[in-house]
Design a protein around this nucleic acid. Structure first.
Length: 271
DNA sequence: CAACGGACCTGCCTGC
DNA sequence: TGCAGGCAGGTCCGTT
């Protein structure tokens, strides 16, 4: 479900409702996520005030007064505010109860998500420290892709989906950005000029920013922290459009598997 | 080091 | 209707 725009949409939906509030109780119904949830999480967080919600790539960083919580939604996770009286349903693994009567619920059927308690500075944590530049940050440039790509033979689509190269470009938006930049997803990363990488960086930023603007892409049942769906799906040029007409040239959109992920492109527009 | 496949899970859709 | 098979928005880790 969630790529960077969906994570950012979630962050924006939650922040105004729970920032500044304190945890009263934390309920953990299922500890078996990607990494086991710390047994002592309820006591560790009890009474702590939430100062801010940040984001790095697809990770949400909940900054409490004396610690931080790192949450990743994996493939099927979501965080939503629910009514205190709402009974938990299947796969509702954690409830964060705040002293302003808000309840943030973590739901994740596939359990690829994670909820990690951090004692150190969040950005020093190995999972965050090794991330590449933030695609929507001001300092992300063509050189950030061009330089580390030299000598690399893997497909450019797999390359830009590597979070250590650039943080948070997932399967949907990788296909979309490559379409906008006119680059074939299978092209070897090391055989793309700086000029074209600059164009690609612009396309990545454009597609992510537009998707954030529309509240993310709702493919199945994505909704933000307040329960509203996203509207970017109607803006997709290639993702999920196999055998349909290219919106630019009217050619036929192709689907291919690249790096074990479904990839979509227009063979006439992308080289 | 780079590239690749496997691993972790459940839900949903398709086709027989 | 039932069931097997394939696929899904992520990413870490082990093996070549």
């Amino acid at each position: 479900m969630p790529e960077l725009p969906e994570v950012e949409t979630t962050r924006r939906g939650l922040a105004p409702n729970i920032t500044g509030a304190r945890i009263t109780t934390l309920i953990v119904r299922e500890r078996r996520l990607r990494w086991p949830v710390d047994r002592r999480l309820p006591e560790l967080l009890k009474g702590q005030r939430l100062d801010a919600i940040g984001r790095r790539g697809k990770y949400l960083i909940f900054e409490f007064e004396a610690a931080a919580l790192l949450i990743h939604l994996g493939m099927s996770g979501h965080l939503r505010l629910v009514k205190p009286s709402a009974p938990p349903r299947r796969h509702d693994h954690l409830d964060f109860n705040f002293d302003n009567a808000q309840v943030m619920r973590f739901h994740d059927p596939r359990r690829f998500g994670s909820v990690l308690y951090l004692r150190e500075q969040p950005l020093e944590h190995p999972l965050l420290k090794s991330l590449g530049p933030e695609p929507l940050g001001n300092s992300f440039t063509g050189a950030d892709l061009h330089t580390p790509s030299r000598g690399r033979h893997l497909a450019v689509k797999s390359f830009i989906m590597d979070a250590h190269i650039v943080a948070g470009v997932g399967n949907i938006y990788a296909s979309e950005a490559l379409f906008l930049a006119g680059i074939h997803p299978r092209r070897a990363a090391g055989r793309i000029s700086l000029d074209r990488y600059q164009r690609l960086v612009t396309s990545i930023r454009e597609v992510l920013a537009a998707a954030v603007e529309k509240g993310g892409t709702t493919l199945r049942d994505f909704v933000n922290g307040s329960g509203e769906p996203g509207y970017f799906a109607q803006c997709l040029n290639v993702y999920g459009r196999k055998d349909e007409a290219c919106k630019r040239c009217a050619g036929i959109i192709k689907q291919q598997t690249i790096g074990q992920r479904a990839s979509y492109y227009c063979p006439r527009c992308q080289h």
